[in-house]
């Protein structure tokens, strides 16, 4: 069972995403609405993949990603951005933000599953 950490300040979204993913029976999901605690929670949970919102209060997704990668224990964990500010078309043919893959909101469970499969072989 894959372990997924979702970091997003929208608690309604994280809760629904957790419930939906968990309902498939294939994932164990931890949700976090405060980006500042991301490293601490990740260390405790040790996820297989982390989904990160880009625009969050106090700290943005980019900074959170840097901190996670800077942590020796977390460095190898794949990070995927979830964002409401770009659409794939807007970003042109680019498939990543700052070197990380991304998914545009609203996002479907199907899309999440595909990304997890792709990154956690």
């Amino acid at each position: 069972m894959k372990r997924i950490l979702i970091v997003d300040d929208e608690s309604a979204f994280t809760r629904l995403l957790r419930l939906t993913l968990e309902s498939t029976g294939q994932f164990q999901v931890e949700e976090l609405n405060d980006g500042l605690r991301a490293v601490e929670v990740a260390r405790a949970f040790m996820p297989d993949i982390i989904f990160l919102d880009v625009v969050m209060p106090e700290i943005d997704g980019g900074d959170v990603a840097s901190k996670i990668q800077a942590d020796p224990e977390l460095a190898g964990i794949p990070i995927v951005f979830l964002t409401a500010i770009v659409s794939p078309k807007e970003a042109g043919n680019e498939t990543d933000i700052g070197g990380f893959p991304f998914l545009a909101k609203p996002v479907s469970v199907e899309a999440i599953k595909k990304v997890v499969e792709a990154h956690c072989a």
Partner: peptide
């Protein structure tokens, strides 16, 4: 608008899926 609308849309769509 995109940011402010897409987040609620994400919630609704995820809710519908759930």
């Amino acid at each position: 608008v995109a940011h402010e609308v897409k987040n609620p849309l994400a919630i609704i769509s995820m809710g519908a899926e759930f």
